[in-house]
Design a protein around this nucleic acid. Sequence first.
DNA 1: GGATCCTTCTTCTTCTTC
Length: 357
Amino acid sequence: MFALRNASVVGFLVQMPCCASHLVTHLSSGHGMLSSKRPSPYSAVDTERYSSLVKSVISRVSSQTPTTMQEEDEHMYGPIIGTPPPTATATGGERRRSPKVLHPFLHPEETTAEEEEAGAGPLARIHLSRGQGRSAVPSVTRILQQTLSPEQVFYLERWKRKMVQELGEEGFKEYSQNLFKQGRTFHSALEDVFTSGVKWEAGSPSEMSQYSPEVRGYMESVSHVLEDVREVRAIESTVQHSALNYLGIVDCVARYRGVLCLIDWKTSEKSKPFLSNTYDNPIQVAAYAGALNTDVNYKYQVENGLIVVAYKDGSPAHAHKINSELMSDYWKTWLLRLEDYHEKRSAQASSDVSEKR
DNA sequence: GGATCCTTCTTCTTCTTC
């Protein structure tokens, strides 16, 4: 909770860079204004826009690197098997290269003027049906999972090792399954909201009491976002890119504050006040949107995205906007990941062949 | 009926004085 409020206050602070550092000191000392239950009037500030400035103000140079951390970890938990030490070039530098073929993100020729004008149209909920020649088509999740940077793999494995140390193998399994379950329950609660066709009323106690304690907090968390969602066009609906041959299931397509967006709902234990806290989520959104824009089942184009991070304690969800400019950057990153995936696959295939011989 | 698929999440950090 405290971290959430910090974020919105920091967002406000950086609007006045001259006194930012002074006020940041104020913040860390737990100033009284932070403990107010009332939503901060500064929460409307576009925190993402100022995120780099915030970081430059509040960040400190750390002497730790993945390599030194790995050395420490090995000392504490024993050696890591099969994990090469990550390098600095494995993330930033490498990801800055351009895709070999810059496939377009938008396909306006797929749009029917009448459909676009008609607005909502029927609600799409295309279920995934494998076996119709789709079994060979990889999914967005799989591609992202298999093309994580060595650094991401390092931190994820390190986190897992620590959790297993703490909870034991069985405990960790249970913990992970519970996280997935919460996410799924939250998604189906949202699905019910959108399919009911009933306008969302700001989280009244009666509204909330219909939800199981498991999702109540999450629903309360996204309540203020749901108020701004209109014209839901698709829910949990399959999209497939006609040329790039990948598929995925879109959470939601709707208007958010009047802008047509591809919306991705997330649950999180940690506060994620900045878009950069969501790791590969924006790439996932760009991948889905790019596919939808080529998919004949959808007669419109979606240029914007929204990632909504909901919290179990009911504190206000963070809604991260991805405008069309940002989206085309993430689209390029997605194309790179897709290239990486295919390269990896063909390398794997040729090594399989040589093994057989 | 069983198996498989797509999702659902998980990483990034610190230590000092009032």
